[in-house]
Design a protein around this nucleic acid. Sequence first.
DNA 1: TCGATACTTAGCCTCATGGCAAACTATTCG
DNA 2: CGAATAGTTTGCCATGAGGCTAAGTATCGA
Lengths: 118, 118
Amino acid sequence: MANYSADLDGVFTALADPTRRAVVRRLGHGPTSVGDLAEAFPMTLPSFMKHVRTLEANGLIRTVKTGRVRTCVLNRERLDLVDDWLAGERRVWSERTDRLERFVTGRTERTDRKDDRP
Amino acid sequence: MANYSADLDGVFTALADPTRRAVVRRLGHGPTSVGDLAEAFPMTLPSFMKHVRTLEANGLIRTVKTGRVRTCVLNRERLDLVDDWLAGERRVWSERTDRLERFVTGRTERTDRKDDRP
DNA sequence: TCGATACTTAGCCTCATGGCAAACTATTCG
DNA sequence: CGAATAGTTTGCCATGAGGCTAAGTATCGA
């Protein structure tokens, strides 16, 4: 995980387009050729290919060319980056809640616990 | 939830910038004024304000001006959109796994189960 | 081998994004 | 009141994203 922030830039950018999200969705069902994917979208092939390349450049899919057909496969693990980021934000929130709770209850405790309410 | 896809466009776009993600992170600790936020970033105020407006326009933060100070507050719920989207993708994957499994086991079952292995 | 198929490459266009400086407005403080 | 503070508005610029057409390459199938 060389450059976490730049990776997030790329993943979020890739997901910020409805065409690309639709491709991700479609590939969730299984590998598909560029041509088959493209049929579902109202744009020319070269335009569509840019989206494919963007997804690939940002690690969300992998593609292989066999003969004249390029097949796309979803790289599910890449979406963990989004999950991890969300988890990180929520951790921040819970730390804040912890501090607030310590203040309210007047207790001082270690901060590495997960949850101390029964 | 009027336009789910357009909302996702906006949320992902807003999160695709490191400055804006840093603001989200910072606001996770609690409300902060624009000025205090801006200090952490190597850009002019007007430039920074654009990021604030982008975050606000896409519902990730809310801001209120009191006197000459504008205070920003994180809108945590908005991140649920990302969570929901991820969950949707994973549901697609699991449906595919279900079909594959039915094929392998030769069984035909209802598809609304969570998990039928003991 | 020749035509159809499945991308690719190249070049061009338009609009959106992110950044800047300069000037302006509205509050607050001494 | 008058100066400092905290944003805001305006206008400009460079880059990149997303779309197109036209032409090129590499298989595949008869």
